[in-house]
Amino acid sequence: MSEMSSSLLLLRNLTTTFHPLSEMEWQAFSKIWQPFRAKRKEVLTLAGETERYLYFVLEGVQRVFFEHQTREATLVFTYSPSFGGVFDSLMQQKPSRFFYETLSPSFFLRAPATDFLQLLEGNPGIEKMVRKGLTYTLAGMMERMVEWECFSSEERFRKLLQRSPHILQLVPHKYLANYIGIDPTNFSKLMNSVRI
């Protein structure tokens, strides 16, 4: 099987978990994707510019982050198999307030925003799949807000490792510390004291 068709198979599996597409819908949806490779620490979307692509992650870890003066806030990590990019800017076609960058060498399929948005218009099945996918993302973000408001830093640390145990070996810990809102030094201390 070629790399492209095995990548598309992964994409199809993900869309099916949201909402199974009919053969015709899948034909249309699968046509808009192109393979795309990026190295470590490449900025794919700049704050101020409108998101031009929807990404489907095959390899590597990426993040969406917000820059406030000299401080950064890491909002989302993406890794395989999930969609990536700045969703709100993509869906609304408004300038992004966030950056999307790779944190390790990455491989994607990506689809131009215009093609993707056009497909949503004429295909109720695709639209339903996207709505369910976004609902799933929304639920994840609400849960993260709860953790943010109510959990101690140690609980947030444990939760992160429960959900993504592999991530410790994949990304510099400073990004993980930033994601759960603790100082990198405290993150190291937790690494030493908390047994998973």
């Binding site: 470590r40 070996q169 990304v171 510099p172 030493n192």
Partner: peptide, 21 residues
């Protein structure tokens, strides 16, 4: 050079930052 630096980083990310004090 980029691929050499990438491999040094891999050592730090997958090994050095995860070993005990």
């Amino acid at each position: 050079l980029e691929s050499e630096v990438e491999s040094h980083l891999q050592s730090a990310i997958s090994v050095f930052q995860n070993v005990s004090d």
